[in-house]
């Protein structure tokens, strides 16, 4: 029978964590960050985590972008953002999503979302590992619950 962790070892009640539904968009890159996110999503599913990747923005509270944001993908990102309900937040993972990385702005690339919108979760790396991605998400959630971590 599974043991439900209701308390910390010290006896304090565990904080109630709301599920985090993430909609991911690869906005034009090598898809390295997306492959690492896929590994993370498998681990989250296997671990029955309350952080989930969903298949529609209408169900998501966090829009997670990877890639250098091509000119063609900009309206797609905008549409996904508009389709998200209620309080919505933005995350950018990987060097390309932050500032374009190796794909600096040109006629086809806008050079990442980092300089154009305020992202709640920002993680550099080319690509960041799944462990780093999970760490960034958890730290951001804890920051939201208890203020910035020490």
């Amino acid at each position: 029978m599974a043991y439900l962790n209701l308390f910390w070892p010290e006896g304090a009640v565990l904080p109630r964590m709301l599920p985090l539904d993430i909609f991911h968009i690869e906005t034009g890159g090598c898809t390295g960050c997306a492959l690492e996110l896929r590994s993370l999503s498998r681990a989250l599913v296997e671990g029955r985590s309350d952080i989930r990747f969903v298949s529609t923005p209408r169900q998501a509270s966090l829009l997670l972008l990877t890639g250098s944001l091509t000119v063609e993908m900009a309206p797609v990102v905008e549409l996904a953002w508009q389709a998200m309900p209620g309080t919505r937040l933005l995350a950018a993972m990987g060097d390309c999503a932050l500032d374009g990385g190796v794909f600096t702005p040109n006629y086809a690339v806008m050079g990442g979302i980092g300089g154009r919108a305020r992202a709640s979760v920002v993680l550099p790396g080319c690509p960041p590992s799944p462990a780093e991605m999970l760490d960034a998400l958890i730290r951001w959630r804890m920051q939201g619950e208890d203020g910035p971590p020490a």
Binding site: L35, G101, F103, N106
Partner: peptide, 28 residues
């Protein structure tokens, strides 16, 4: 949607810069 203008980026790049771009064409 995934076009990044790689041919334009390559023009004028040093061999080392080009090699770094080449590794990031497709992660698969």
């Amino acid at each position: 949607y995934a076009h990044r203008g790689l041919c334009a980026r390559m023009r004028g790049a040093t061999v080392a810069q080009a090699a770094r771009l080449v590794a990031r064409i497709d992660a698969t």
